[in-house]
């Protein structure tokens, strides 16, 4: 039973982290690069319009960071619940 409770808690922690990561994923690509691109384009980052920058540069850097942060946090969660490989 304890083991099963532990597994459930582990899965909840995983789902929470996944949901947060997906929210960031959605924000930097779909919101910043597509839906609100015109509004962001009024701001400039050097020669880049900010919305354009998110669509052609920033979203991709963000994706890389999301995966590594997720992998690190997940590794910590694995160890916390004693289910690491």
């Amino acid at each position: 039973m304890a083991d099963s409770e532990n597994r459930k808690a582990y899965w909840r922690a995983n789902l929470k982290l996944t949901a947060i990561s997906l929210a960031v994923w959605f924000t930097i690509s779909y919101l910043a690069g597509i839906v609100f691109v015109e509004q962001l384009n009024t701001i400039h980052l050097g020669g880049y319009k900010l919305g354009f920058w998110f669509a052609q540069q920033g979203s991709m850097y963000g994706f890389v960071i999301i995966i590594f942060v997720y992998a690190r946090r997940m590794a910590a969660i694995d160890r916390k619940y004693g289910v690491h490989d």
Binding site: S29, A55, Q56, M60, F63, I67
Partner: peptide, 15 residues
């Protein structure tokens, strides 16, 4: 800008 779908689409899938 219209070409951005390929950039975001073909990388975001890895997340």
């Amino acid at each position: 800008y219209g070409g951005s779908v390929f950039l975001m689409g073909w990388t975001g899938g890895y997340v």
